[in-house]
């Protein structure tokens, strides 16, 4: 375990020394500031012109919460790929991995250490961004987001799925190919999520099945769909006021979440095995 923590520490140190951490923190603050200003202006305007009950006011608030979290969710996926796509593939290509792999540690410790370092940074970023956004909404509109912990957990899990696949790809593919493969898989899952949602609304069993099949191949988007479903107040759904481009008409089941956790663990295990047996 000592080796795992040393590699994780090295990964964190690299992110700090390369100023990646600062870039993420500063741009994250810029994102939240922009969101706060935009939400304040729009919410003030809507409240001044809103006609109807409290439920009608919740509809745009819910929309903006989901829009903001969806943007964070997308940033998390991008960060997961961009921070990890080169971490193993690049070091293999350059030969830099050779001095590390000849130290008294198992090769698996290198994979797990890098994964752990990146996963912790990704998780901290996700939690901080989501919590800050929810706090902005609470302070501005006195709106308490439903199921915040589960929703943030699911967004973190989505990031970890993408991160783990990227690390797995890096053990076999070049940096460029790895990036293309992971982004394309994410794209497939994204469009399959839409097919499933629209199929669900139109009661098309075939469309729903296609969406589920692709989700089994790449369960990342399903995590967002479930997070979005949990974030929405139930009565908005009952009143038919939940239709947003970012929300979910139906939620993937808890079994899908368990599947996603197992999927991530399996991908990491395969990454360890692949890296352990390949020539460096």
């Amino acid at each position: 375990m000592r080796s795992v923590f040393e590699i994780a520490r090295l990964t964190f140190l690299e992110a700090r020394m390369r100023k990646m951490l600062w870039a993420i923190v500063l741009l994250g603050i810029a994102f939240l500031a922009l969101y706060a200003i935009g939400f304040h202006l729009i919410y003030t305007d809507i409240r001044a012109h809103m006609v109807g009950g409290a439920a009608r006011l919740l509809e745009p608030v819910n929309f903006f919460v989901l829009a903001g979290l969806y943007a964070i969710n997308f940033l998390v996926v991008m960060l997961a790929v961009l921070t990890s796509v080169d971490t193993i593939a690049g070091e293999i290509a350059s030969g830099a991995i050779q001095t590390i792999a000849t130290k008294p540690l198992r090769r698996g410790a290198i994979v797990v250490g890098k994964w752990l370092g990146l996963a912790l940074m990704l998780a901290v970023f996700t939690v901080a961004m989501c919590a800050a956004l929810m706090l902005i909404v609470k302070l501005e509109a006195d709106y308490t987001v439903r199921n915040p912990i589960q929703a943030i957990g699911l967004i973190v899990l989505e990031g970890l799925i993408v991160l783990t696949l990227s690390i797995l790809g890096g053990t076999r593919l070049s940096t460029l190919t790895n990036g293309v493969v992971v982004f394309m898989l994410y794209g497939l899952a994204f469009i399959a999520g839409w097919i499933e949602q629209i199929g669900s609304m139109l009661r098309s069993e075939a469309a729903v099945n296609i969406g589920i099949a692709v989700s089994l191949l790449m369960p990342s988007e399903a995590m967002w769909k479930r997070a979005a479903y949990l974030l929405q107040p139930p009565f908005l759904r009952e009143l038919g006021l939940d239709a947003t481009p970012f929300g979910a008409a139906s939620a993937p089941s808890e079994a899908m979440v368990v599947y996603a956790v197992l999927y991530t663990a399996l991908a990491l295990w395969i990454a360890i095995k692949e890296f352990s047996r390949r020539d460096l």
Binding site: E14, G95, Q98, T99
Partner: peptide
């Protein structure tokens, strides 16, 4: 491996 040292031919440094 704790008793082994290695300088690779193509040593790449961070």
């Amino acid at each position: 491996m704790g008793r082994v040292g290695f300088l690779p031919e193509q040593f790449r440094f961070p």
